[in-house]
Write a protein that binds this DNA or RNA. Structure first.
Lengths: 215, 215, 215, 215
DNA sequence: CATGAATGAGCCTTCATTCAT
DNA sequence: AATGAATGAAGGCTCATTCAT
């Protein structure tokens, strides 16, 4: 399998190095893309940020687009949690929601800048958009819908259009991220408090109890 | 006293023509930018889409950036409604919320593609971002906060952190738009039903009444 | 000859108007070209400087190059003085030289900015250069040479290579103009004194009399 | 300590290559600019003339203007000779003048085309003009004036306005160059003989001795 | 004739990508 | 594998010129 006269390559080590280099490049790319935008950013800047030369990048990525895809994939790895919902079955809706939002929003916060790049580009890049939709959004929505439907059946939450309810919840999280990315200071400074408040509103509503009692 | 032909031509007519041309160009630009993204799109494409020559665009806009700013300004004209909230004082929170969301989301829907362009670019363009933040987001948030505070004082809604509550509401709307722009089909197909559902959840919560009663 | 039903045009008047317009345009062009250079200057600037519209310029000149040619021709009208030299035959060399330089340099001063444009462009435009050479430089040199030769024969000036002597004299005048156009302040501020000094040096030399006597 | 291949490559060699490339480009630019003029010339032509691609030029020069500045600087290196005058103190004025003009005009001849470009552009480019004036013309004039003043004090040349005398001499040289650049054939074909004739005229004048004696 | 909006060819410049070292 | 100089396609923008009003 290996060429004559050569040691069988310790592919493990090789792979490790390659993976590290790719990681190094993707991280640099994320920083640069986040600051300048995908198109405005140049390969030269990414190379400089990564501390390597331009040519080297092309040893690890097909082209500039592939860099963006790599950033997206990196995001995928942190998404798609079926477990998130499975655990939820055992708790009350309010508790589950708070716990879920806490974890999800924490993960989002850590990847703020990644989301900035990916969102910006996805909005106007159909290919990237479809990829993300197929790989992340749709599956996540499906799982969440099922969870909600179960919640309704168990009487935990009132009868509601699960399809919409799920999207409203997902939208809220997404929208808070966008508000923050747009520079609104009311969101970012208090990111950690948000899950609880959202959970409280989503489960119990905003109306005062008297009003609620009138219903 | 002056010759008829020498008069500064009826500025009204001239102005009308200029405004129409600008409108024509901005609309074409919005379509092209939305499809390709601001940087990927070329002036040549915008010109073709508008059915004019490239040079003509520069008779009406300083440069490509100015085209983007014009799109943003167009959005500003439809935003910033103090009235939206003022009217709300007379109604119950639930009614007001439904009515407000209906109008706001309707306006957003009509400007979907404009938002696509502007959002995409704002996420990675600090200058544009700050402009929008200062001119739209911050003032709107301030007004909404005041309204919420008044609602709390009037006992319409329970005591809540208005700063966060307002952002959660705004975030929800923004996030639903983003979900739709990303291609999620559960949102766009039922856009008109959303205001009512959101208002219902936000005011009364998702928990079933029994649960709510236990609180 | 004239179209039926029309008065035979008073061509004199028409011509006068046309000539005035052309003059107006050429003057504006000279100012603009002198400040920005021929290529850097735009037709729009010339039009604005002349107080007319761009289109009108094309009613009087074929194209931008024709404008430059018109400037050159205007210069020709003030050059080519055979008389200058003919008069000179009656005087001593020193007197003639002073008088000649006075008139020539005075004319040059009035057309400083025209020379700036024309010189700048001629240096790098072979077509323009040849036109000027054929129409102005060569004839002038020929006449001057003849005058110098006569001066030698009459014993007014010592035997000298007339071909070179003439060019040295012409070069001095040209070079002083260039020095001034380049911004040297020692020349422009004392332009009127120069003819006398040049005439003195050219006829009598710079060496002190004792030295001259030793020769 | 460091790996051989990682060393900052022998900067001497790198520098040599860079300098050679810059030289290659400046030479090509000089030829193209001289033929077409700075503005009329295109980067594409310069690249073709240099036998490289357009992009490469931008690896070595900031922009088209920088190319012009490089040409100007190249000229500066050959100008500004204090020594030229210092040596002169030991000789008679006539001998010094002949020697000085020989060297100066020889240098000018070698850089004819450079002067063509630089002069043409300087006449209509205030920025370039001021740079050249400050760096070359003014200092040279100052030194020459001092020399002339010394010459007067030593009785070598008669009392004369040094400020003007110096400019007349400089103007003569400049003007002869311009005459040649304009295509006059009487100058270029006999460039080498000119220093002697100019020196002769400038020191002893053109008048025949009898006339001079009569003064 | 005068106007000035429209045109589009052409230029400077950038930058993703290649490849010899 | 790494490097970074070279490449040249492509884009933003200018401006001479045209032509309908």
């Amino acid at each position: 399998m290996s060429e004559p006269g050569r040691e069988p390559r310790r592919d493990g080590v090789r792979d490790l190095i390659v993976r590290a280099r790719r990681e190094q490049i993707v991280e640099a790319a994320t920083r640069v893309f986040a600051e300048k935008g995908f198109r405005r950013a140049t390969i030269r800047e990414v190379a400089r940020e990564a501390g390597i030369s331009e040519g080297t990048i092309y040893n690890y990525f097909e082209d500039k687009d592939a860099l963006l895809m790599a950033i997206l994939e990196r995001l995928n790895e942190t998404e798609r949690r079926v477990e998130d919902f499975e655990e939820g079955m055992a708790k009350t809706f309010g508790d589950f929601l708070g716990e879920y939002l806490r974890r999800r929003m924490s993960m989002i916060w850590e990847n703020r800048e990644v989301f900035r790049v990916v969102l910006s580009e996805m909005l106007v890049n159909a290919e990237l958009r479809e990829l993300y939709l197929r790989q992340v959004v749709t599956p996540t929505m499906r799982i969440a819908e099922e969870y909600f439907r179960a919640m309704v059946e168990h009487g935990q939450i009132r009868s509601v259009d699960t399809r919409l309810a799920v999207r409203i919840l997902a939208g809220t999280v997404m929208g808070l991220l966008v508000l923050d990315l747009l520079g609104d200071e009311g969101v970012g400074t208090r990111w950690q408090e948000i899950p609880e408040v959202v959970a409280s509103i989503m489960s119990g509503g905003l109306e005062s109890d008297e009003d609620a009692g009138q219903r």
